[in-house]
Design a binder for these strands. Structure first.
Lengths: 306, 306
DNA sequence: TCGTTTTTGTAAATCGTTTTACTAACCAAT
DNA sequence: ATTGGTTAGTAAAACGATTTACAAAAACGA
């Protein structure tokens, strides 16, 4: 277009105070440059870090994000999917509750660009960004075994999603590799509401564990008060290691050993994959799984010192 | 409408797999049941807590939220406002960077429902949800004075926004009320990038402060490493108190004394006010400021023990 | 200057709803 | 059977952009 008409148009834009209407635009173009993000539970630090990674990439490409918190509730998850569909989002990034297979399947059938994050849904071939969780569980356990712990507890929220199942598998595998049997009563994988009681009882039983692995940051948040209450000192009386990043973990006494995930990068990756799919550059990527490496950060809480 | 036609319609909805299109609906109705949230910097814990409060209320009323992170950058803030306008949001909740008066003014002029959060913009009469920050600063300082501290440092990010200015005012007022003079060299309110160096120098100077107040959680995050590095122990060598909630603060050694804001509730309140304005029930509320009370949670880091 | 290409102006259809209007059909009660 | 009132059905305009089409005008090279 000619450059003086261009100028004329720009003048008109300011003189008429024209403001584009993305809703009308979206209606006609069938494209909203908006993606929907549904996280299983925003209370996990992982979720917020991942969201930032997603947002930063989207911001680069002038896409926008609507973040929804399913609150571990499949009903809510479904409601949000419907809402986001109604809003004509161009694609989804979902940390699935795992309890909505039909829903996910429909999304695939309707050819919505979709990326799973954190958790795999085995029955579907959807590109997924996840951690090598078996390895994460294995390394955490191995580290404790190396400190001569034999009675290692594994405390987790319900072992319903791949993430937790795999971490547990890693735990089991490490114990087996070292010839240590797994003891049922050192394992808890259940409702967060009972976690404190069960863990408390575990510590008060005879022959209590000398080390504990927390399945994620929310578990840690329940476990620490129990230790304080029972006046158990780390790491001498109980060694501790937790999955997920803990803010200020180096300022705890003792500093907390963690197995961290590159959450931010995982978010970036997921956004990348999704935008590629949306823009048709990556049909072939469907079904691919991107695995990230866990990072064991050894601090004081897991170091044997007797 | 007759109940058999209603049934007929419902059947058609499923047989045709009808899915409503909120974009078309929004276009016609000039209403998207979506609000825009712009936070000055999502890295503050306050911002994420506040967002949750907002979201929960919005979810109740079937409104949706788009959260944007201005990253302390007025340019970005403006860009996001334009984007959200284009998306035809029904209203805004903004934690203002404070450096965009014209932008805010336009929003008011264009009669957008708007609520400010956390920070006041003095020159505009916009309903604002905020903390009694002067009181917060006063109480924090008074508490340290009560522990017989006289050399109290005040470390903050730039004193450009009302929140920080007021906390500082409270600090000054408490010192004055107790007849203690304020010493310029105990005060830092500047760029986060220089914070560590400046604070480090402050501690190494002769006659260093015996207590420090951190202006917010991000400041704390810079201050703690300095203490660790200089091997300064709390609270004997330096008492510490920080604004904002710190996760796990009771598990620090020493447990960190905090001045907390009811962030979640403040978010709820802001959302409430905004939805009332959107639905025309509260024209009169314009200009009102809702102030919340700070909560001083005394823990070990501020308790004198020599 | 002619013919060709590019730029400009104008108009109409479309996206999927809501809104308004109007007519037709139905039901109950007088 | 007539009246009034409700419910059904149909149609068309509107929301604010994009898209397509076509005609008119301008710019260009030979």
């Amino acid at each position: 277009m000619g450059k003086d008409t261009k100028k004329r148009i720009e003048e008109a834009i300011i003189s008429l105070e024209y403001q584009p209407n993305a809703v009308a635009r979206g209606l006609k173009q069938k494209k909203t440059t908006t993606i929907g993000i549904i996280v299983a539970n925003i209370l996990h630090r992982f979720s917020t870090q991942v969201s930032r990674g997603i947002e930063d990439i989207c911001h680069q490409y002038e896409y926008h994000t609507i973040i929804c918190n399913a609150d571990d509730d499949p009903e809510k998850e479904k409601k949000y999917v419907d809402m986001l569909k109604a809003k004509q989002v161009d694609g989804f990034i979902i940390i699935p509750t795992g309890l909505n297979e039909g829903l996910y399947k429909d999304l695939v059938k309707e050819r919505y660009p979709l990326i799973f994050l954190d958790r795999k849904v085995e029955t579907l071939s959807v590109p997924t960004v996840t951690l090598r969780n078996v390895k994460a569980g294995y390394e955490a356990t191995l580290h404790l075994l190396d400190q001569n712990h034999e009675n290692i507890a594994f405390i987790s929220s319900p072992l319903t999603v791949s993430t937790r199942k795999e971490r547990y598998q890693g735990y089991v595998k490490a114990l087996e590799d070292k010839g240590a049997g797994i003891k049922e009563n050192y394992v808890f994988g259940g409702d967060m509401n009972h976690l404190k009681d069960k863990f408390s009882a575990m510590l008060e039983a005879k022959d209590p564990p000398t080390a504990v692995i927390c399945g994620n940051d929310r578990v840690l948040k329940s476990v620490l008060p129990v230790l304080k209450q029972q006046n158990i000192s780390m790491p001498d009386e109980l060694a501790l290691i937790t999955f997920d990043e803990v803010e200020f973990s180096e300022f705890f006494t003792p500093a907390i050993t963690t197995v961290e995930q590159p959450a931010y990068e995982m978010g970036e990756k997921a956004a990348d994959l999704l935008l590629q799919r949306i823009n048709g550059k990556a049909e072939q990527a469907v079904g691919e799984t991107q695995e990230f490496e866990p990072k064991l950060k050894i601090r004081e809480s897991s170091l044997y010192k007797r």
